[in-house]
Amino acid sequence: MKTASPTLASTQSIFPTVTGIPNGKLGMWVFLASEVMFFTGLIGAYLVLRISHPHWTGPEGHLSVPLGTLNTFILIGSSMTIVLSLAGQERGSLPAMRGWLLATIGLGALFLIIKGIEYAAKISHEIFPSTHVFWSCYYTLTGFHALHVLGGIGFNLRVLAVSFNPLAWKDQSHRLELAGLYWHFVDIVWIFLFPLVYLL
């Protein structure tokens, strides 16, 4: 029989459910499943356009692979910091939890700053979504992803703020795990977007 994660086990005793999974966590997973479908629709459209377009110019010479690689490092690193934040919470160390969560927020913000620099460079060269079907896909895919990163930062900030209120934290500490699940999903989306848009 599988062993439940410590976080699951701790919340399960407080909120017994039919599935054995806290409702919030189950809801987050169902939400993420719908988000997978959302991004697959966008990525699928990109792939079909790319394969069927006879004169696909692609990103050659226009997208900075070093910047994209750096952003990937940042997002992968932020996935680690948020799971370390959860590990800190499970050890009962609030300072560690807050520190790693703050690092996650900082890395997320850095990702968006770099993305903003990239956008600014494109716009300064008069590259807009209407320039070419590739750029239309580029702005749509990376733009929606950036919005999700922004949403994740907001979620993480909210969890961080609540952790300073002991009474609220007692009831809402499980939200760190939910924020972590969402953040990892955003990382997984980028894991596929980066090679598809920058490398291939």
């Binding site: 599988k2 062993t3 439940a4 994660s5 976080t7 699951l8 599935t19 054995g20 999974i21 966590k25 189950l26 997973w29 996935s79 680690m80 799971v83 972590g180 699940l181 990892h184 999903f185 990382d187 997984i188 894991i191």
Partner: peptide, 15 residues
């Protein structure tokens, strides 16, 4: 990421 950071490896199979 899914197995180790999102803990799917250790969590309930339903997830």
């Amino acid at each position: 990421v899914a197995l180790y950071y999102m803990h799917l490896k250790m969590d309930r199979r339903l997830l």
